[in-house]
């Protein structure tokens, strides 16, 4: 964040919401020195065609990503928990609205 040598500013991740009610989705990044500049730059870069109704910007350094090496530990255990899915359950034929 405080590296004065790199004169292309700090990197911010940009999330755009395309319509109220929808989630903010990662669009890419912009470079900026402050929050206001980051929002304006995101607006001028990622919403030129009316793609946006809301913008989030986050300094890239503040984003923590999961480690791909831990993918098995993190994500595989949920694969066999079929009871979380509605199709797991056996219901009598003719049951309606459930």
């Amino acid at each position: 964040m405080e590296n004065l040598q790199d004169n292309q500013f700090d990197v911010w991740e940009v999330f755009i919401q395309s319509k109220p009610g929808l989630p903010h989705i990662h669009a890419g990044n912009v470079h900026a020195t402050d929050k206001k500049m980051a929002v304006q730059n995101a607006r001028d870069t990622y919403t030129r065609r009316g793609e946006g109704t809301s913008i989030w910007v986050v300094p890239s350094l503040n984003v923590t990503a999961s480690d791909p090496d831990e993918n098995e530990m993190l994500f595989d255990p949920s694969n066999d928990k079929m009871y979380r899915h509605p199709t797991f359950y056996i219901l009598p034929e003719g049951a309606k609205n459930i």
Partner: peptide, 11 residues
């Protein structure tokens, strides 16, 4: 002065 500002001025 930076690519982002180029886009801003064009807008």
């Amino acid at each position: 002065p930076i690519l982002e500002e180029d886009l801003a001025q064009t807008n």
